[in-house]
Amino acid sequence: MAAGGDHGSPDSYRSPLASRYASPEMCFVFSDRYKFRTWRQLWLWLAEAEQTLGLPITDEQIQEMKSNLENIDFKMAAEEEKRLRHDVMAHVHTFGHCCPKAAGIIHLGATSCYVGDNTDLIILRNALDLLLPKLARVISRLADFAKERASLPTLGFTHFQPAQLTTVGKRCCLWIQDLCMDLQNLKRVRDDLRFRGVKGTTGTQASFLQLFEGDDHKVEQLDKMVTEKAGFKRAFIITGQTYTRKVDIEVLSVLASLGASVHKICTDIRLLANLKEMEEPFEKQQIGSSAMPYKRNPMRSERCCSLARHLMTLVMDPLQTASVQWFERTLDDSANRRICLAEAFLTADTILNTLQNISEGLVVYPKVIERRIRQELPFMATENIIMAMVKAGGSRQDCHEKIRVLSQQAASVVKQEGGDNDLIERIQVDAYFSPIHSQLDHLLDPSSFTGRASQQVQRFLEEEVYPLLKPYESVMKVKAELCL
């Protein structure tokens, strides 16, 4: 049975990233139509530049190519590739079939990587351009969430054990800070992308030097003109047959890092959902379990974690691919890159769409948070109580021993009897502590235990987050809708 299948058929496997999760716009960027249309555009740009620099290419040939950029006979191309065992030459023939007058000058002087690699770089750039505003929107939604809850005390956790208090907004800023680093890295790697350009079979530009009869300047002009037509500021000066596969490492490393950030955020949300302090959106008709109707599973956060793990592992592909590119190139890269580049971007696209949807509907339960604080705060307040007693004339050592005994009794009630923490009640009825009984409410005010959390939130948002989001103001209103 021949390899390949009808990918629109229910009898043929289709990647869930495309069929179930990723956005239509990201799927289109990695589609065959987008790819092969870009090949034709690159052939047109090459012909236009070659004509401008004096090669015998007519206006009629150029116009014929322009008129057929979208006229792609995919069936013919597939048949040609089956016959020739070469995808680029299959599309040269297919393009030439609908451009008979231009057929002889299509791909003039070029090698397969002229269309293959340059198209990949265009796709990487455009895919990054799709991700950047999506990530900015996630940051914006979380920034709104953090600002609104900047002063809401909550129990902090280290080692997932109760620690000092923080605020809900401050905790959210930990998430935002990681995503801001990801946004900066995505922008950097996007701006650092260079075009492969017009380089020939081993990167020496020998074929173009021959076409222009040894004119170095025209060869350099050709490279520059096509690079500018493709919208790049610069091209690699040095290439082998391909652009260095280190570029793929750079791009997928940034995406993998984004995956790590999203995994951490969504894990926190899942843990908070278990504590009943916070939940992701839950639709009115949504079913959490087929057997347990009360369940409210954090399905979206779980999906993000599941896909983020996949995204983090994909960076190993370009690392290994770059390491086995012998001399000017081997074909070890080809099949692998067809999979890992598309999957990385479709996965990143999915987790950003999902995280935006989550961040637009996060639900906080202040009463649950308050109750958990009441359970733990008495123990945390013991040092403040000791200091207040010393100020009232008591002995630190005597007070410490009193607190120690009462704390152990209260802990026994919590752990052995399943009761509430009654340390404060014990202190309130103990005559030894009568000098500070009137101060206990103040000493137990949760806001006095959150330090500068709310001020940190305000400063972080104003100095770091809002300036970073400013270039994306025009796209901030787009909502994230999930079908599944």
Rank of each mutant, 00 (worst) to 15 (best):
A136D: 05
P378S: 05
H159V: 01
S261T: 09
R374D: 06
R85P: 00
D32P: 14
V247S: 10
S474R: 15
N118D: 02
D317W: 01
E79W: 11
A78G: 10
D192T: 13
E473K: 15
L377V: 05
D32W: 06
L183I: 11
C340D: 05
R459G: 11
R404I: 03
D120P: 03
H310T: 08
V465D: 02
T111Q: 01
R270M: 01
A260T: 01
R303H: 01
Q161F: 01
H442Y: 11
S23P: 04
M387P: 01
C266A: 09
T330W: 01
F433D: 04
P162A: 05
T204V: 12
S412W: 12
R14C: 15
F212K: 04
M389S: 07
F28V: 06
K479E: 15
T354K: 04
Q161R: 04
L155D: 03
K199G: 09
Q458W: 14
R137K: 13
E463M: 15
V168E: 04
T58E: 14
F282S: 11
E213I: 15
A260E: 05
L258A: 13
E213C: 14
V254D: 08
G54T: 04
V363A: 04
L179P: 02
L272K: 06
R426V: 04
E220W: 10
L44K: 06
R396L: 05
G418A: 05
V226R: 01
D32S: 14
L142P: 00
F36C: 15
K295L: 01
A163C: 02
A381L: 10
A49G: 08
Q458F: 15
A3F: 09
G451I: 05
C304E: 05
R83Q: 12
K264V: 03
S301D: 08
C172L: 06
A291P: 03
K264F: 04
F30W: 11
D59V: 09
K284Y: 15
R234T: 11
I62Y: 05
Q409M: 10
Q397R: 05
P467K: 11
T94Y: 15
I249N: 06
T166D: 01
A150H: 11
F345M: 10
K470G: 12
S454G: 12
R125M: 11
Q205F: 00
N421M: 09
P162W: 07
K233H: 08
L53D: 00
S9T: 14
I386K: 03
G104D: 09
N185C: 13
P298F: 02
T382S: 13
D248H: 04
D248K: 04
Q397H: 08
Y466C: 12
A103C: 10
P281Q: 14
I105M: 09
G109I: 00
S359N: 10
L362T: 09
A47R: 02
Y432S: 10
A78P: 12
L275M: 12
D349W: 04
N353P: 07
V405N: 14
H159T: 02
L444R: 02
V324M: 09
K66T: 11
A344C: 03
R329D: 00
D129N: 12
L130Y: 08
P366K: 08
L469D: 02
S31K: 06
H91L: 07
Y13G: 13
Q51Y: 07
R452E: 07
V115A: 09
D445P: 04
Q458R: 13
A163G: 13
L275P: 02
V92Q: 00
D215L: 07
H310A: 07
L443M: 08
K470W: 12
T267H: 08
E425C: 08
E64V: 13
S151M: 09
R37A: 11
L121T: 10
P435G: 08
V254R: 09
Q51F: 08
D182Q: 02
P298R: 01
A3P: 05
R426M: 09
M476T: 15
D192I: 12
A2K: 14
E481K: 14
E148W: 06
L84Q: 14
H159W: 01
H97E: 09
N71I: 09
E220I: 11
L135N: 08
Y34P: 01
V115I: 14
V429E: 14
A49K: 00
E48N: 04
R426P: 00
S289P: 00
L142T: 13
K284G: 14
S207T: 14
D422K: 10
F208N: 05
